[in-house]
Design a protein around this nucleic acid. Structure first.
Length: 164
DNA sequence: AATGTCCTCAACCGCTGTCCC
DNA sequence: AGGGACAGCGGTTGAGGACAT
């Protein structure tokens, strides 16, 4: 269906964001709010595609984002939720306030997947406490992820296209 | 000190689901 | 009802830093 030609448009910046681009994006969103990602870059004066702006905002610039220092409890919770949900990173992130799906996905792929593959030490594979995981698994998700849930019912893992 | 290899993480890409006309 | 536009998701890539030789 009507898929946009994506980010390969000529004349758009790619790669790491500069502090100036961040400033422009943050001030624009603070003024006009989120949404309309397709037209946001043009209106904000950014040489980026809308998807890039959205990703930057959601994963790094949004208020309340926690970066790094994933605690043992959070780590355990990620492992538990991954067992329950599989690679539903957005759902897992919804249970971890301040964490983003991209960060959790990266953390899983680089660190946790290796830990989980290691032989378990004792009944609880890494000696985690049960506090966070119990409350997260047993309780309903926080209200702010109620809306994105509609996106969660996806048709399983997909392969991306040809490598770059 | 120089070089090679591994690891981490920010960002991109392609796809699907939903909304709206 | 059909199709375009938009929003969001998950897999993957690549640059750069850390570490090993």
């Amino acid at each position: 269906m009507g898929r946009k030609p994506c980010c390969s448009k000529e004349g758009l910046n790619r790669g790491a964001w500069t502090a100036m681009e961040d400033d422009i994006l943050v001030s624009y969103i603070n003024k006009h709010g989120e949404g309309k990602w397709g037209s946001l870059p043009r209106r904000a004066g950014l040489q980026r595609c809308g998807k890039s702006c959205r990703l930057r905002w959601l994963n790094y610039l949004r208020p309340g984002i926690k970066r790094g220092n994933i605690s043992n409890d959070e780590e355990e919770l990620i492992v538990r939720l991954h067992r329950l949900l599989g690679n539903r990173w957005s759902l897992i992130a919804g249970r971890l306030p301040g964490r983003t799906d991209n960060e959790i996905k990266n953390y899983w792929n680089t660190t946790l997947s290796k830990k989980v593959l290691l032989p378990p030490q004792g009944s609880n594979h890494s000696g985690f406490s049960n506090q966070l995981q119990l409350q997260a698994v047993a309780s309903p998700p926080p209200p702010e992820d109620a809306a994105p849930q509609t996106r969660a019912a996806r048709s399983g893992p997909r392969r991306c296209g040809a490598p770059r």
